[in-house]
Nucleic acid binder design. Structure first.
Lengths: 131, 131
DNA sequence: GGCGGTACTAACTTCCATGCCAGTACCTTA
DNA sequence: TAAGGTACTGGCATGGAAGTTAGTACCGCC
């Protein structure tokens, strides 16, 4: 078998921490991973990967998200420096959300993952493995 | 800025579903995404991406996982056709887990994501964005 | 003989993410 | 005047994820 991590991203090989244990419990990586792999985190990053969007637009695109979770998730992602918030002091309020540079980096990795999930979802759910 | 979704996986662009709504709520993609982005799902897939491993080895590598969650997660991933289980009828019991072909496909996308999280974790947690 | 390791399953409990609802402040349209 | 849209915040409820504990069956080690 020659499928290995090396095929994927030569400059992105998993670091030292992996040799002998995936991650120390409670290390920053775990926290960050939790944020970006959270149910709504993924969807929102994904939606924003296609460009700046307003609050209400995000609500519609991340179908099923409640206002509370949208606010909470956006706040987390903003604190993590992945999303930037631009509020315009107009009435009615208008707030635009977009990805930061770091956010784009992330979404570049996230998008193929989600695409893969989308493409394989039916097979997987129907229990049709090829192997 | 040249980081865009197009740079990543030309054949993996996000499909039609995305234009106008990330995913329908309750569609298979959501379910699969939940499995593979689950707290322990990620860690286990990651650990297995480095090759076949036994139960007890996985316990140690995914630091902090309880036996219950390990069993549960492995069962889910096995049902999804991402992990294969080989039990040897020896005493004491010996069970080896490895990724299926589909599992490797996934891990190839997951590994760079996790690597990114690892590399950026400190910056993110300390709130030091560069932008 | 008793402890520990291997690979689990099952029951009970706890806790946090999420959901649901209500409220805010201002404007527009009917 | 009343309803509805915009962008939120906060409280309470709950369900599912996760943790805890115990039990199983067999063996090797000391």
């Amino acid at each position: 078998m020659e499928v290995s991590t090396a095929d994927v991203a030569p400059a992105m090989r998993l670091p030292v921490g992996l040799a002998g244990g995936v991650f120390p419990a409670g290390c920053p990586s775990r926290t960050v991973l939790d944020h970006i792999t959270s149910k709504w985190g993924v969807l929102i990053l994904l939606a924003l990967s296609e460009g700046e969007q307003r609050w209400s637009e995000l609500r519609r695109r991340a179908e099923g998200v409640s206002e509370k979770m949208l606010a909470q998730t956006l706040k987390t992602l903003e604190r993590d420096g992945l999303v930037s918030r631009k509020a315009q002091p107009v009435i009615p309020p208008r707030v635009d959300y977009s990805l930061t540079e770091r956010g784009y980096e992330l979404s570049a990795l996230l998008v193929p993952l989600v695409a893969w999930a989308f493409e394989n979802a039916d097979d997987i759910i129907n229990g049709q493995r090829t192997d």
